[in-house]
């Protein structure tokens, strides 16, 4: 199936004709001139990007182009890497996330993250989901916690599969289920933005289809940024796509335009499989 055919996406509840990319929606996050250095090596060379509310933005590009690095700037996960330095401005709802008054730990509760490899904690399924709410004090008492866990698992489409085995360890689930557990875990702290770093690269096609469907549903409530190596996946789940190459953002446009009518010849070369 060609990418063009796959662009015929399912209609979404809040989609109006011609407004799929959400041009009229406000920007949830904005990046201006973002540069990242690992020691002396420069990984990002000044990125400008707008992330629209309640839309899925896909970041594509060859390995080592800096898309994961950019993603990890958005919730300051790069802070945990020794020797990493970030320049430029990234704003969440207009507020600089690298500002002095901002608590990086608190920021990560608002900008959640799902990783490439499913990484459930060595705890029960229930405690995996309840971990975030517990440390942030989002649920007082047993009943509220049950409620949060149940809602999160339902939203992540995992509830029916695990509702009878909430006390079993999270690691006992299959790979695809583990990844949905990680999404449920991220949802449980009620983030505004969810960052996904190649969330399906360790999963089989069926589990991947599951997650993709889930991403499409989640954008009703969350803003999502997803890094992917799979261009079909970008075409299927995102409304806007940004193409990264060698630490630069080559172009960012509506997904349909990127895949049908790319302006830059590097983008053209990458999506038609000439390199990357």
């Amino acid at each position: 199936m060609s990418i063009q055919n796959q662009l015929k996406l399912r209609p979404h509840a809040d989609d109006r004709p011609g407004q799929r990319s959400g041009a009229d929606l406000p920007n949830k996050m904005t990046a201006r001139g973002v540069k990242v250095f690992y020691g002396a090596k420069q990984a990002l060379k000044g990125i400008d990007l707008d992330i629209r509310e309640n839309r899925v933005l896909a970041l594509i590009g060859p390995s080592g182009c800096g898309k994961s690095t950019f993603l990890r700037c958005l919730n300051r996960m790069n802070d945990t890497i020794e020797g990493c330095r970030v320049e430029g401005r990234i704003a969440l709802d207009g507020e600089d996330v690298y500002g002095k008054a901002v608590d990086a730990v608190q920021l990560r509760a608002r900008v959640g993250m799902v990783f490439q490899k499913p990484n459930p904690f060595p705890k029960s399924i229930y405690d995996n989901v309840g971990y975030g709410p517990r440390i942030h004090g989002l649920a007082s008492g047993r009943d509220e916690m049950d409620e949060v866990v149940q809602t999160s698992l339902k939203r992540a489409g995992l509830w029916t599969e695990v509702k009878d085995r909430l006390r079993e360890p999270g690691t006992s689930l299959s790979g695809g289920q583990q990844q949905r557990l990680c999404i449920a875990r991220a949802i449980a702290v009620s983030p505004e933005v969810i960052l996904m770093d190649e969330p399906c690269s360790a999963l089989d096609p069926i589990a991947t289809a599951h997650i993709e469907e889930l991403i499409d549903e989640l954008r009703a409530n969350y803003t999502i940024v997803i890094v992917t190596h799979n261009m079909q996946q970008a075409a299927r789940v995102s409304q806007r796509t940004a193409f990264f190459h060698l630490g630069e953002m080559v172009e960012c446009d509506d997904t349909e335009d990127i895949f049908t009518n790319p302006r830059d010849e590097r983008t053209q070369g990458y999506i038609t499989g000439r390199y990357g």
Partner: peptide, 25 residues
């Protein structure tokens, strides 16, 4: 490291991560 990342990604502090994720593991 992925377990630590997972915990930081949920907005946990370093000592929360150590107490609740790293040490149990």
């Amino acid at each position: 490291q992925s377990l630590r990342d997972g915990s930081y990604g949920l907005g946990a502090t370093k000592s929360e991560t150590i107490r609740q994720v790293v040490l149990p593991a």
